[in-house]
Structures are given as C-alpha cells and as structure tokens.
Design a protein around this nucleic acid. Structure first.
Lengths: 354, 354
DNA sequence: CTTTAGCACTCGGATAGCAAGAGTGCTAAA
DNA sequence: TTTAGCACTCTTGCTATCCGAGTGCTAAAG
C-alpha cells in the first residue's frame, strides 16, 4: 500500500500548489512543479491512480485534482518539510511574548490575538482545567466605609478580584484581622477542602462580622471553580473571510458562530489525544465537531506548570499551510511554557528594565 | 421646509418597512403600511417629492425607494417611537449585569459581549481616558524566593497585577517593608506626580533593595498610563454576517477588520459630541471614519465615576432598528453607571435623569 | 390645485443558449 | 511503461431574451 516515489512527488506537488492557489491542479501544472521528466499523460495516469486510492479528489470531471483529507494526512505525515521560522519571525514572537504577557490571567487572550495575527487564521487558546487549584493568598482592600475589594491569588499565579459591598461600615483594622484569618485558614486548600464546616469555624473566630468570611471565601471558590473549567479565548475570527473557501457567507457565518461558542469548542477538542507530542494536526473529518468537519485544526500544547497543560490552536480551511502554522504555533507554545515555567522554577534570566 | 403630515407618514412607512425587509419599498406597499386613503399614484407623487428633497433614494429607476441617510436622520429625530423594553428583556439584562460584572476591569469586555448578543450587532465598549487616575493601594505577594506579584488598585477600582522576578532572594519581612513604603509614598499620586525625584527618595529610604521600588512603581505607571488611553473592547463582530447588506464578503471583511483595529475605532468616535445627551445615533456619512460611512453607529454613554464617562456602542447597517437598539443600549449604559456608581459614592450625588 | 386612472417606459434578474478553454480518459503506438 | 493524440465533459463567461415590478407622465376628474 506504499506509494511509489513518483506518486508521492506528485501528491506533494498537488498539495502544495493547492495550498498556495486554492485552485485545482492539472496534469500540466504538475509537470513544472514536480520537475518530473515525463509527459502530462503519464502524470494523468498517476493522478487517476491517486484518485482511485482516495488521496485526491476531482471537483468535477474536467477540472484538475485537489487533495482529499486522506491526501493531506499523508502529506502532513510524510511529505511535509518542517518549516524553520525566520529570525525575524522568532524575534517578533519573542518580543510579543515579553511585551504582552504581563498579567498571567490575560495571557490566553493575548496569546490568541498574537497567534491569529501571526498565522492569519482564527485562533483559540485554552488553559486546561486546573483541578487541584488552591488559593495562595487573600488581600482585602478597603474602598470606602461600606465596600472593599477582595483580591485572591491562586497557586497558578492568577489574580482575580471582586468588589464586595456591605450593609454596614467596616474599619481598616477589622479588615486586617479578616485578612490574616483568611490567610491562615483557607490558603492552600483545594475546592473540595473548603468545606462549610471550615467556614463556620472561621466565621466564628472572626466574631461579629456579617458573614464576611463566607462572602470572600465563596468568591474564592468561584475563582477555583472557574479555573476548573477550562478557560477559552478566541481571536481573529474575521480572518476566516480572508480565505476563498469562505467566500460563501453562509459557510463563514456558521464557522464563526461556532467559534464564538467557546465552550462547545473546548469540549470538542480531543485534548487527551495530544498525548506526548506537542503539536497535533486534525484534518477535516478527523475533527469530532460537526462544524469543523471541513476545516482543519492545528494544536500545540504548552505547559502551564504543575504538570497541567494548555492548548493553543488555529482553525482554517483544510487547504492550510500546515508546515508554517505548526512551526509558529509550536514556537509560541514553547514560549508560553517558558513564561509559566519562569514563575515556578527559581533562576531565570534577568528582567529587562524600563 | 417642514414636511407635510402625509409625507412624514410615508417616510416613516418606508423606513420601517425597509428596516424590516431590507427591500426597496414601492408605492403599493406603502398604501397598506401607512394606512392612507389615497391611491398609489398620489403616493408616487409624494415619493417623487421626498426623493427630490433627498429623504429617499432609488437604487435604480424601476425599483422602490429606500431611505437616504437624511431620511433616516429625520426618522430618528422626529418620527421614531421610543421603544420600551419588555419586562423579560430588562430582567435578562439585569441578570447579566449582576452575574457577569464582578471584576471591574473585565466589565468592558463582558458588557460588549452582552450588548452584542442583545442586539445582534457587533458592539464595542470604551472606557474613557482617566487622565487623573491614581493608585489607591499596592500589595506585594511573595511567590517564591525570587519572585513576587505586584498588585495595584487604582482609584477607579481597577486591579492589575504583574509577576516580577528578581536576581536575588527576598524575604517576607522585606516585602512588608516595601509594601508600606509604597503605600505611604505613592498612593494618591497621578502619573505626573510620580516623579523620578520621588522614586529616588523612596528608593533611598528602602535601603538595600535592587531598584525594587522603581520596578513596582514603573509598573504602576504603566497601569496609570494604560488607563489614560481609553480601553477598547469589541465583541460579536460575526454578527455582521447576519445582515444581507454584508452578503458581499469584501464589504464584511473591510468592516470587520476595521472593527478589530480597536484603537482606530476609539479615535474616530466623536466622544465629545455626545455632550449631555446619553445616547447618540450616527447615521452613515455622519461618521467620521471612512470605513463607517455606510454604516450606522449607536452610542450610549455611562458614568464611570469621577465625572468620567465611558461609551458603549453598536455598529450596523444604516438599516438598523434604531429604536430598539437605542433602548437596549441606554438601558445597559444606565446599568453600568449604577455598577460603577455603587463602587464610588455612598449616596452623595443623585443620579441625573433623562 | 389635488387626486386619480391609465399607460408607456425602464431597468434588474432570471433563464437559456452558445463559444471558449481547461483538463480529463482512453486508445493505440513507441 | 510511457507517450501522443483526440474526443469528451464540464465550467465559465458572454449575450440575448423575457418577465415583472415599479416608476413617471399625461390627461381627466374632483
């Protein structure tokens, strides 16, 4: 079932030409592209074989060939040349990583934009569920007499805050007290460990206060919970319209609105399937989601610390420049891993000044 | 130059029909819609007048009429009935406001999504430049020996954070010291007041530390600076494709990519022009941005506290359901104002009505 | 002076037919 | 196995034609 060398050459020519032009490729065009010393008739015979075997398709009898998903698959697995990024490109990515990724909880947003801009495809980023997340620190900051801001820092260095208003006034010392209480009783606990029992005890220790402890702790629980669900961000959906396969508005719209249902998207990705490889390409019908059956998805995973993984990906027509996209994606993913890694492991590079 | 009552009725019928159907309206159709007891010929005469005067346009000789921007303008100013939201709608909005608007710095994002979903148009939100923003509070939280997270809270209750890494180890007490130093020296200062002079003094007072003060303070300055530029968020751009005027992909793409240049968008909006009214409608060529010349924009302003204003808006074809959109937008804007208001004033100054 | 009926006219959109061009598949020979 | 040649298929673009919607105008009626 192995293809001859020549067939592979031809398949490759078809794929690469089609990726560039989005036009079916005919036998004559292949002649030049593949640099084979045979006639177009020979190529036609080969094409017929490849079509027979399911690697190519014909939009209609008298058109050239386009790759089938199976054809792309073979191409990606065996024929594709790894793409090296230019120095300029890596420089650009590095710069963006350093410039934009200051606040860890905005990372997925920014990373999405960046990738989308880099690849000209819509991108999405998800930060995997951190099942065992805990709070590392509480801070309460008085705003005025009757309200304060609760800030929690999780062990994955995500900072979240909420404005909490009270029916009564509150003093700075009271808040201090609460803060230390919170920091002694609730830090390092996972969601499950934050039992009502524990809260009752603390509430009691705090004395007076109006269920303040539970207000703050339930906020903390919300945060932990939200980290449990994977966070999703999509960006650059408008790039869909750049590609001729979506000149039909109906199609474009379907895909776009699917992408904006971020939860559905997250669900449909076979994250476990990523396994140990750090990039994965899903071609057309290989996608589980019905809406993605005639698009391709390129995924790259990044380490989020604690053995947790996040995923970054782009969506595009099956006629996608897999090599380039995979290269970029994987470079960004590495960058993200380092970014998160830095936070965890001690010695790194010195921070640049401003 | 006043139009007769009948002309107004006809204009109104044209606008409203066209808003619904996106099809040019003919004289016969108007008969039924406007409920006038005249013949179609009479209507045609009136239509000719209205076209003459620039309120209507004809796509081509043998088509019906569509409203011109001038026609829409008249409609919006005089003919449009204010739309009341249904109880269900207000309930829905209120719920979303309470549910989603916990973190103040995520508000503009969430508000955008919400409005876009509510109106089926792409939406954007900008939080006006807070020129005089100050820091209200610093917190430094140790992550591990050589890194910590700086959290700053601004006077507009925005919380921002950054992970800062050091070439040396740091102890909890040291951080404590720094924190109080920061909170005594730099709180309540505007961007301009955070002079190098001030930093030098504080740095000196802090003794040892590796320019730590300036690291944190320059982060704070970045934050203040970023609040100075207006923050922009766009959402729901895919809704553009819902409307038949964008069945042409080229057009849709242009608009989309314009919307994603958030800075340009923010620049182009005539915010001052909003003046005291709290909603404003810009029809077609009334927009300054070239890219919006054949779209309409509905804006509503909300109070962000401190006399500062933010703006929330949607973009759509000139054939937009102005009444409904304006109603929803203004309701959301009010909600936002209250949200911010809550944070700021205990019931000091009453809400402005109208 | 306004309204109306009647009618010719215009233009866009749909449909069909036709010619050109691209690319194939097949056959028969090298 | 490869190649040349050729008939065949199917798309694309163009043109012609028809149909209908809706107008604008005129002349008569209120």
């Amino acid at each position: 079932m192995e293809l001859t060398e020549r067939k592979k050459k031809i398949l490759r020519a078809v794929v690469e030409s089609y990726i560039r032009t989005a036009e079916p490729v005919g036998s004559k065009a292949i002649l030049e592209l593949a640099g084979l010393n045979v006639s177009s008739a020979t190529i036609r015979n080969e094409l017929a074989d490849l079509t027979e075997q399911g690697y190519l398709e014909q939009p209609h009898t008298s058109a050239g060939r386009i790759p089938s998903p199976k054809g792309y698959r073979l191409y990606v697995n065996e024929l594709m040349q790894e793409q090296r990024l230019s120095l300029e490109e890596t420089r650009q990515i590095n710069e963006a990583l350093h410039l934009k990724m200051q606040e860890l909880d905005k990372v997925i947003d920014q990373a999405g934009r960046m990738v989308s801009q880099l690849t000209n495809y819509p991108a999405f980023v998800l930060a995997g569920n951190a099942r065992r997340a805990t709070i590392r620190r509480f801070e309460l900051i008085l705003v005025d007499g009757s309200s304060f801001i609760a800030v929690v820092l999780t062990d994955s260095n995500v900072v979240r805050n909420k404005l909490i208003r009270l029916p009564v006034d509150l003093s700075e010392p009271q808040l201090q007290l609460l803060t230390t209480l919170l920091n002694t009783s609730f830090v390092g606990k996972t969601l499950e460990e934050l039992t009502p029992e524990l809260m009752r005890v603390a509430e009691h220790a705090a004395g007076s206060s109006y269920g303040l402890i539970s207000l703050v702790v339930s906020f903390a629980m919300e945060v932990l919970e939200s980290l449990g669900h994977s966070a999703v961000a999509t960006a650059g959906t408008s790039h869909i319209l750049d590609h001729p396969e979506y000149r039909d508005v109906g199609k474009a719209q379907k895909l776009m609105s699917y992408l904006s249902e971020e939860q559905a998207l997250a669900q449909s990705l076979p994250l476990p399937a990523l396994g140990d490889e750090n990039t994965k390409i899903l071609i057309g019908p290989e996608n589980v989601a019905e809406e993605l059956k005639d698009t391709s998805v390129v995924l790259a995973s990044y380490d989020i610390g604690d053995g947790m993984k996040g995923v970054i990906g782009v969506v595009g027509p099956t006629r996608m420049d897999y090599a380039k996209v995979a290269a970029k994606l994987s470079y960004v993913a590495d960058g993200l891993s380092k970014l998160f890694g830095q936070a965890e492991l001690p010695p790194g590079k010195p921070e640049k000044e401003e």
